[in-house]
């Protein structure tokens, strides 16, 4: 497999190191190598609401840094994946837009030629590593665990930028990977429902209400954990779980795990090496259910 540059974005390096650690461990064990670029910045997503062209220039700068290394981008935040994929596609196809953006990159000594491909890590697992190789790497079946996948909007949508690798209405790639670990991937009504994360800074109560809906549903289904692939979805379902419990006088105590943490466990790695100690809602009961010491 060709090496990828690993794009971390803003949230992961300081708030979701468990996601980064587990991603790196799992990738390395499956033969996927990452190139480190220390000066990747914000992808551009928060800026796109304010000014699209400025956000595109930011995304293009990141794409140009990867291009200089001659490698594609593996992103693990879904919003970063969305913005970088969308801008990358536009600049690859539209020469005029590329020339326009390159004018803005000139003062920082960069030029983007339009060659970089962007994929989310879960997509790379499904598409390039493949379920067969993943199943072979599983040495500890997570039998008995019931995990609800949460896809994250920008992992799937807008579908025009994602080449049909999964369905926005009835997705299955994350279900497939969870199933490959021996755990049960639990289907539920609002599987593709947004976490509300984009609204947290603008209207906290509104954002929490959106997250609450899914937590309510998963509580009723009595799942052991949520499995997800975006740090901001985790901010909503895990970091804010206590706040949702207090605000709306309810309780969940529902562990929120990153997909590579789940996969790493099934590949025989220790929970502490996958950053489980950094998960705020402790997953000990779920781990014990699968016969693993926390």
């Amino acid at each position: 497999m060709k090496p990828y540059t690993l794009f971390l974005g803003c949230t992961i390096p300081v708030r979701a190191q468990n996601y980064e650690i587990s991603t790196r461990k799992v990738a390395s064990a499956l033969g996927l190598e990452f190139i480190h670029i220390p000066n990747f910045t914000c992808c551009g997503y928060p800026i796109s609401s304010l000014n699209e062209m400025t956000a595109e220039a930011m995304a293009a700068r990141n794409l140009a840094l990867a291009e200089k290394e001659g490698a594609d981008i593996c992103a693990i935040c879904t919003a970063c994946t969305g913005v970088l994929t969308e801008v990358g596609k536009k600049l690859a196809e539209d020469e005029k837009a590329r020339a326009e953006i390159n004018k803005r990159l000139k003062p920082v000594g960069l030029e983007y030629k339009g060659t970089v491909k962007v994929k989310h890590f879960a997509r790379i697992l499904h598409e390039e590593v493949g379920l067969k190789k993943i199943a072979k790497a599983v040495t500890r079946q997570l039998k008995g665990l019931r995990i609800a996948p949460h896809y994250g909007c920008h992992y799937l949508k807008p579908h025009e930028i994602y080449e049909g690798f999964d369905s926005p209405e009835d997705p299955r790639t994350i279900d497939d990977i969870i199933a490959a670990t021996g755990a049960e991937s639990v289907s539920y009504m609002n599987k593709t429902r947004c976490c509300g994360g984009a609204l947290l800074a603008v209207d906290e109560n509104l954002a929490l209400k959106i997250s609450k809906e899914k937590l309510d549903q998963l509580k009723a289904l009595n799942v052991d954990a949520i499995g997800l692939v975006c740090p901001f979805c985790s901010v909503m379902y895990e970091s804010n779980q206590k706040k949702i419990e207090t605000t709306f006088e309810t309780s969940y105590n529902l562990p929120v795990l990153y997909l590579p943490q789940i996969l790493g466990l099934a590949m025989g790695m220790d929970a502490k090496d996958l950053g489980f100690n950094m998960n705020r809602v402790k997953a000990n009961a779920a781990l014990q259910k699968a016969g693993i010491n926390a």
Partner: peptide
């Protein structure tokens, strides 16, 4: 309007 800032950018409507 506050509304325009309350779009969660989930793309469900667009889809």
């Amino acid at each position: 309007s506050d509304f325009i800032w309350h779009c969660s950018t989930c793309y469900t409507c667009s889809e």
